[in-house]
Each structure stands twice: as C-alpha cells, then as structure tokens.
Design a protein around this nucleic acid. Structure first.
Length: 928
RNA sequence: GGGCGCGUAGCUCAGCGGGAGAGCAUCACGUUGACAUCGUGAGGGUCACAGGUUCGAUCCCUGUCGCGCCCACCA
C-alpha cells in the first residue's frame, strides 16, 4: 500500500540509481540497435557553472523529447558534456588563487597554472552534471564529453589547420575589441553596449598659419586626441570648405595634421568636424585607410597612456611636428596614467590653454566587456580571424532551403540578418586556459600552422632550406640538438575562443574526425533545444562548422525557447548575480513539480517569469496522481495479463479508454509541434479533470459493489488506464511515474522493466462517441444539480429527490444504469420519472430535457423565481444576439453555411430552453 | 538609428477570425469509504487605446501609448 503522499526527496535518489543501474539512457542498447535514431546534443554548460533556471528549462524540454522518443522505441542519444569556458574558468581559478593568497597566474607560469585549472576542474567541475542528474536529465552519461578532452581537442586542431589551409583562417593586424582588464582580445559578440552618461567636449584645434582661427571638434574621448592624425569634415559642408587641404596643429603634441574631406563626417553631429584617431576607433580606422593616415597607438594593453608610439612617430616623421612633442613635458606627465585619469588631465590642460570651447552632457552607448565589465578599447593588434562571411553562405542556404528550420519560425529572420552582415570572427584570446593555437613561428618571420610541433618543425626546415635561410648543415644541427630545436620554433601563445570548440560540438562529441558509428547514425541530430541568447554565439557557428566539415547540417530542427528572466524582466546571468536557484525549488517541491511547471510555461515566443505558486500547484498534481493510484490499489485495480482495451464492454470503461486515446493523440500532436505547454496541459487535464474527477468517481459504486464481470472489467480497465497515464506523464514527471510504475508492478503480472524504457501507448481507434454521449449526460446532470443546489442554498448534507420530466427512453435507461453514481455525486435521495413538472420544484435543463428538484419547504420559492427570471433574461440576450446575426443579410450570404446553420441550431436550443423556463415560472407563480 | 516581442480575471500566464480560458488568490459550502498538497460551487475581464479590413476582430492591418529584448560607428 502506498503512503499517503509522494516523498520526492526519498524517491528521486533511488529512481536515479535504478536508471543508472539499468543503463537505461545509453544509446545503442542491444534491443534498439536497429531502431531509428533520435539525437540531441546538450548545450554544454560551463564547467564552472551551477544549475540555474535557464538550464532547468532547457534541459527539461530536451528531456521531455528524449524520454518521449525513447518510449516511442527510438534509439536515443542525448549527448551530455560541459564547456571549458575559457575566460570564465580562468577567472574563477585566478580568483581562488587570490583568495588563498597564493601566487598569481603569471608568477606560477603557464604550465603550472593550466595544471591548476585542471585540478580545479577535477574537483569542482562535476557540480553542474550532478545537478542535471537531479533534474532527471536522461542523457547518455557514459558518453559525457568536455571541450578540452583529448578527442575534442584533436578535432579543434584539425579544424583550425584545415580552415587555415583553405584560407578561411588567417592572421591580421587590425583593430580589435580589447579588454584592458582581462588583457585579451574579445569578439564582437562579447561586447555589451552600456548606456552611459558621458560628456561631449568641444576642442579647438588651431589652424596652421591662420592666427586665431580654430576648427572645433567634438569628442566623447578627449584623451584620444594624442593619437589624432587628421580632422575630417564632410565634402559638402560649406562651413569648412576652405579648410580642406589645410592643416591644424594638434594641441599639446604639436603634430601637423591635415583637414580632410570624408563622407564619414556627419554635419549634423557635434560641430560637423570630427577628429580622426585611426588607432583607437573603428570608423576612424577606415577613414585613416582611405586617406593613408598614420596610425599612432597611445595606449598600452591595460589602457594606460603610452607615449612611445608618439615618440616613434616623431622620430620617423620629424617634419610632421612643429616642435618636439614633449617640449612642454606634457607627454612625460601623462605617460603611464590610466585612460580616465588622462582624460581629466587633458581636459584640464586644454582648458588652461583656452582650447576647450564647451562641454555638454552627452548620454551615449559605450561598449563594455561582458565578462570584465570594463570599457572596451579598439586596439591595434595581430589576431587570428575566421572568414565567417564565406562560412556563413552555406549556413544561410541551409535554413533558406528548409534543411534546418527554426521553431518558432520568426527566429530565422534574426539568424539571417546576423549572418548576412557577419564580420570576421576574431578567435584568438590572450589567455592560457583553452586550446592553444597550433601555429609556430621561426626566426625568419614565417608561421607554420600544423597539427603538432613535429610537423611544424619539418615544414619550417623544408621552407627555410628552400629559401636558403638555412644551410643543410644548420638544418641538421637543429634536428640533432633538442635545445636548439626547441629555441628555433616558438608556439603562438594565444588560445582559441571557447566558442570555437563549441561550434564543433555536434560532431566532435561523436568522435569526429574518425568515422564512428555514432556519426553515421546520429548526425545530423534531430533537434537542438536552446535559448535565443546564443543563436549567434553558438547556433550559427555550429551551422557553419557542421556544413563545412561534415558536410551536412548539424540539426534538422532548432527549437528556441524563452529565457527565464528575473522578476524585473532582466536576463539572469552569473555576473549579475540575479539567478534563482532551481535546486531550492527541487528541494522544496521535487524535481517533477519544477519540470512540469517549466514545460507548462514554455509557450512559444514569450519569456518566463516563474511563479512559485505554479510549482506548488504541480506538486499538488503529483500528489493527486499518487493518491489516485493509491485508491486504485485499495480497490483491487490490478493489471490483467493480456488485457485488450478494444474488447471492453462497459460504457464507463469504453469511455475512459476513449478519453485516454484522445489525450494521447493530443499530446502527440503537441509534442510534434514542440508545443510543450499544450502537451503538459493535455496530460494534466486528462489525469486530474477526466480520470480522477469523473472516471474514479463514477467507478466507485461499481468498485464498491458486488463482485462480477462488470467489476473485474472496471478494475482491469482502471489499472490499464493508469498505466497509460503514467506513460503519458513520464516525459514530464519521470521520478513520480517511475516510482508508481514500480509500485503498481508489485501486484498483477510482472513488469517487463523500467517505465523509462516502456513502450508508448497505442490507443488509436479506441475513441467511443456513444460512450461519451452517455457518460457526458451523467456528468452534465451531476454538474447541473450541484450548481443548482449551491445556488439555492440546499444544505450540502441534505439528500433531495430528483425528478426527470418527460424523459426519453434512452434517458430513463441511463438514469437507471447510473443511478448509484449520480445519487452519490449529486447527493440525491432518489431519481424518479414524471410526465409533468412537479409542483414547488426547482427546474433545470440537461441536454434538452427537464429535470426537477422538488424542494418544497427546503428552499424559498421566490428565490427560485428570481433565478428562473435571471436565466430567462440571459436566454433572451442570447437569442437576441443570434437574431441580430441572422437578420443581417450579409452574414447569411457570406458566412460559411455551417456557421450559419450552427447559429440557427443554437437559436432553436435557446428557445426550447426558454419555453421550459417560462412554463416553470408560470407554474411557480400559480403556487406562490 | 535598425529589428523583434509583449500589454487578456487581483497575480503568473494560455488562447488568437465565429458565444473569453487555466493555475494561484478571493468568497460560500463540505470530516461523501484515494487525496484538506482535497472536494463542490461562485464571483471576477470595454482581451492597452484609436482607426481600418471583414458578414463577423481579443485574434488580421495601420497608428498611438506603455514595457522588454536584440543589433548598430563611444563626434
């Protein structure tokens, strides 16, 4: 016998162990070897991470699909794993070192630091995986991967080398987004625009040879003036027409810089003249290229002023300066100061020189690093780039041609727009934790991109001997002397963007570049389930890499779910610290309740703001089902060997089987369209509002009655339908249902195994309209009597008689068959038949026939008159509404025939009902 | 500046061309032999606003207001 309530905490660990023990989630189980495959790759969470609501939602949805398809007989691979998360992980470990007052990463050196990160990973990296298991994620855990695994790293190297050979990866010196706190380049996507209250400083630049004449430039970053190499005005801007071709003398520095005409300059903005700093601004960089301007770097890697670039320029182009730039000691003063300090100092210096025209408050958007939170600097460095534009073309085509489709479809537009305007992807990072770039440099300025150092060495020797940089003897000396050899080649220090390895996830996890059986069976994967926040970071890049290397799309469907946001509607993120911990909810209500809530709220196209009351409600739902099973057990509803739902006789039994068939079909249709909320709703309603509320209640008289064929059929059917219910619910509430499956397996014929591996119910063709008509009548009658009783204030405990007026033969028969159940559920003393309305009674209409509660002495008849008049009024309104429609010639002419016909039928129904109400009113009026 | 989305019952959210729904909350009643983590019943919405299309609009179109998100060169 089951306990009174379901105890998730106790059951969850036990059930998890049972799944693991049975290796239930492994792909390629012997009995499914030949079954069709179904595959999903998990969006690998950061190894540093812990489970947040976004993960909970994401993995619940994947698990629903995985479990559903597994029960439908597929060979399911749900590929799990974690991401090494370069910057995030490196930061975590560095923070830990600082906290423990241990030597920092630079002090300990690269090798020791990386070893330290691995140690950290071994120790703490399992957190998120264990949390996923607590959620019930049915991944094939035996295949867990990590992006820094040997196999995956091999894939990364191969991809890098091959893309390089194909010219799709190259090294380039250009402006990058530089994070001066993390001291690394980052990609465009890692830059977050932040609305900032800044100033617009209007600076006067003296025009050369025209005493007292200035050109005013407006800037939000006065400190960059040190690197200015031009002033640009619009070619058609008449205000400045005569100045084009002349020079200004850059204040503080004494550099002669030209006034150029360039369309980039916007006469509407600022003063209409814009200072050009090619080394520190993306637009200015382009202007600089067009006008062949020098690029003078004025910042070091940590965004402090570095005047060496100015000094170098002075040395190289003495003629471009009216004086030694540090004549006044200004550069010496500024050198080494932080960019924001320098800003203040420069403004002050210019103010003293009366070169500051004015300062205006100027709110604008400033790019910040998404990890570091500091202002990003455009900085001129050598970095590795992926030619994303070329790789994007097949990725665009695949979605345009429908080989891969987004659900909901509107995300395709976002995807297209990004890929159509894609920029080169900067993939090198000046970090230590990650895949080190397989590029080696020789002393002659050559670079060798190879799978390993030996190959690079061979290539280097060959090339340099051919180029006569090395003699044969020198080459041989390098080969013979390990020390010399090691010094000859230096490896690129940089590592790859974390997303580079994630982009390979769908095939690298399946063993690529080897030709594995997994790749053959499970690639392309069936569906990718992810949030829209990583469509660019991850989805698009997987499409590019998958199509290039496999070469086939990595997934057929891409289901994009909503983001779980915090109460203010802000995106949850580790850095903001506004995460809600799903584990607290699991502790409190159980994993099943949380899962069901997330699935039920996962409507397409809307964000989720989680309400705890929903979780509580679905916990109650679990209890409800638990108790339904308990009741079934108490009443001997055991499963029967060879039970055939198609051969059932009893109306109630045929009805509930039909309802189960309907719910199953509804669920299947919903999941096929990734409508998780509809699917969850269908199971919920079937179990609670159909099975518990009506089937069990209507079955009670039978189950409590004498033994016989009807009773044993009802018992067997109830047990059978409960099995169906457990199966339908299992994808959403795996723990509860698996436990109930085991517990109900203790009686009756032995279970064949775990519910997780049990076959999905097939009830097609078992809908039973005639049974629905009969049971539906009983349900309506009971509901109507209950409503009237409550409205007339009939004491809940009072048993009152019911009279069916002018009942048809069918109704009379049904009333006799369902007598027990109806009397019990509607609290009736007896049900009788009459040819006319009894006096002093309350009337109701059920499916077109009149029923009456003779309530003389129990209720106030005046009240009943009021009730009837109210109903009459309502009916009048309905009829009037329909008459309005029907008298509209356009409606009758243009609306579909069946709509018009339906309106007519409704009108007839209302009128018949009204007649009955009126006659009741008349009768009551006489009595009163 | 460009794009996407949202505004439906007190709250959290479904629905989306033919009579407004769920859960929670509220109120009333209930110790009916599974379940009070329950049962029965009830109240509660000009479906943001204004136009338009249509026989018919919460649903489609346009605009307005409010809110959110994404993208974009820090004059």
């Amino acid at each position: 016998m089951l306990e009174k309530v379901f105890d998730p905490a106790a059951v969850e660990t036990r059930i998890s162990a049972a799944w693991e023990e049975a290796q239930a989630f492994r792909c390629g189980r012997p009995e499914r070897k030949d079954a069709p495959g179904f595959s999903i790759v998990i969006p690998p969470p950061n190894v540093t991470g812990s489970l947040h609501m976004g993960h909970a939602l994401n993995n619940t949805l994947q698990d629903v699909l995985a479990r559903y398809e597994r029960m439908r007989g597929k060979d399911v691979l749900w590929q799990p794993g974690t991401d090494h998360a370069g910057i995030a992980t490196q930061m975590v470990v560095e923070r830990q070192l600082a906290q423990r007052q241990e030597p920092g990463r630079r002090e300990m050196g690269r090798a020791a630091f990386i070893e330290r990160v691995w140690a950290w990973k071994e120790e703490s990296g399992g957190t998120i995986v264990n949390q996923l298991k607590r959620l019930g994620a049915s991944c094939d855990w035996s295949r867990e991967r990590f992006t820094m695994d040997e196999g995956l790293s091999r894939a990364v190297l191969k991809v890098f080398v091959e893309l390089h050979r194909a010219g799709l990866i190259y090294k380039d010196k250009r402006l990058v987004n530089w994070d001066p706190k993390l001291v690394t380049a980052i990609s465009d996507l890692e830059v977050q625009p932040v609305e900032t209250k800044g100033n617009l400083w209007h600076l006067r630049y003296p025009v050369e040879g025209e005493d007292g004449r200035f050109i005013v430039v407006a800037t939000t970053r006065p400190e960059t003036m040190l690197g200015d190499t031009a002033v640009a005005v619009h070619p058609e801007d008449e205000r400045y027409a005569d100045l084009v071709g002349k020079f200004v003398i850059l204040p503080l520095v004494g550099r002669r810089i030209p006034i150029v005409a360039d369309e980039y300059s916007d006469p509407e903005k600022g003063s209409g003249a814009v200072k050009i700093t090619p080394a520190h601004d993306f637009n200015d960089f382009e202007v600089g290229r067009r006008h062949h301007l020098p690029m003078i770097n004025i910042l070091d890697a940590e965004a402090r002023i570095d005047v060496s670039g100015i000094q170098d320029d002075f040395a190289a182009r003495r003629e471009a300066y009216v004086d030694d730039p540090d004549f006044g000691g200004v550069l010496t003063l500024l050198n080494g100061t932080d960019r924001f300090v320098a800003r203040k100092q420069i403004v002050e210096l210019l103010t003293n020189l009366e070169l500051l025209e004015k300062v205006e408050p100027h709110p604008h958007v400033v790019p910040h690093g998404d990890r570091s939170g500091v202002v990003i600097e455009p900085w001129l460095t050598d970095q590795w780039y992926v030619d994303a534009k070329t790789l994007a073309q097949p990725a665009l085509a695949a979605v345009r041609e429908g080989r891969t489709g987004f659900v909901p479809k509107n995300w395709e537009k976002t995807y297209f727009e990004w890929l159509e305007n894609i920029q080169p992807w900067c993939v090198s990072r000046q970090l230590w934790w990650g895949h080190q770039i397989p590029a080696w440099y020789d002393p002659f300025g050559n670079v060798f991109v190879e799978l390993d150092e030996d190959r690079a060495f061979e290539a280097a020797l060959a090339k340099n001997v051919a180029a006569e940089n090395l003699t044969g003897e020198e080459a041989q000396a390098l080969i013979d002397d390990a020390e010399k050899r090691a010094a000859f080649l230096t490896r690129d220090e940089d590592v790859l963007d974390t997303w580079f390895s994630s982009a390979l996830w769908p095939f690298s996890t399946m063993g690529w570049p080897d030709e594995t059986p997994e790749l053959a069976k499970f690639y392309p994967t069936s569906v990718l389930v992810t949030g829209f926040d990583i469509i660019f970071f991850w989805v698009a890049r997987m499409m590019m890499m998958g199509l290039h290397f496999m070469p086939d799309v990595p997934f057929k469907d891409i289901y994009i779910h909503a983001l779980v946001r915090d109460e203010k509607g802000a995106k949850m993120s580790k850095s903001k610290g506004n995460v809600i911990d799903p584990l607290d909810l699991i502790d409190q209500y159980g994993a099943d309740a949380l899962r069901f809530t997330l699935a039920a709220m996962a409507a397409q196209g809307r964000d989720i703001k989680l309400a705890t009351s929903r979780v509580e409600g679905y916990r109650n739902f679990a209890t409800k089902l638990w108790n339904a099973v308990r009741f079934a057990q108490m009443n001997g509803c055991e499963r029967v060997e060879g039970f055939d739902p198609a051969k059932v006789d009893g109306t109630l039994n045929r009805w509930i089987i039909g309802e189960a068939a309907r719910a199953t079909a509804e669920l299947e249709a919903a999941l096929a369209a990734y409508r998780f909320n509809d699917a969850a709703g269908a199971v919920y309603r079937f179990i609670w509002n159909v099975f518990c509320d009506w089937h069990l209640e209507l079955a009670k008289p039978v189950l409590a009655g004498p033994d016989g064929a009807g009773k044993s059929e009802t018992r067997a059917t109830t047990a059978f339908v409960l099995d169906v219910a457990l199966k339908l619910l299992h994808p959403f509430m795996p723990f509860l249902t698996e436990e109930l499956w085991a517990r109900t397996g203790e009686q009756g014929p032995a279970r064949e195994g775990l519910l997780a591996l049990a076959p999905w119910p097939d009830l097609s063709g078992l809908e039973a309209p005639d049974a629905e008509a009969e049971v539906g009548w009983a349900v309506d009658l009971i509901t109507e009597v209950r409503s009237v009783r409550a409205e007339m204030n009939v004491p809940a405990g009072a048993q009152v008689p019911l009279v069916l007026v002018e009942a048809s033969a069918a109704t009379q028969m049904r009333a006799k068959v369902w007598d027990d159940a109806i009397r019990r559920l509607a609290r009736l003393s007896d049900i009788t038949f009459a040819d006319a309305m009894p006096g002093e009674s309350v009337q109701m209409v059920v499916r077109g026939e009149v029923a009456a509660l003779p309530l003389a002495g129990i209720v106030d008849l005046a009240e009943e008159l009021t009730r009837l008049r109210k109903e009459d009024g309502k009916l009048d309104q309905e009829v009037a509404r329909i008459d309005g429609k029907l008298s509209n010639a356009s409606f009758v002419a243009r609306a579909p025939e069946e709509v018009v016909e339906a309106e007519r039928e409704k009108r007839e129904e209302y009128l018949a009902r009204k007649a009955k109400v009126l006659s009741a009113i008349a009768q009551l009026s006489r009595t009163a």
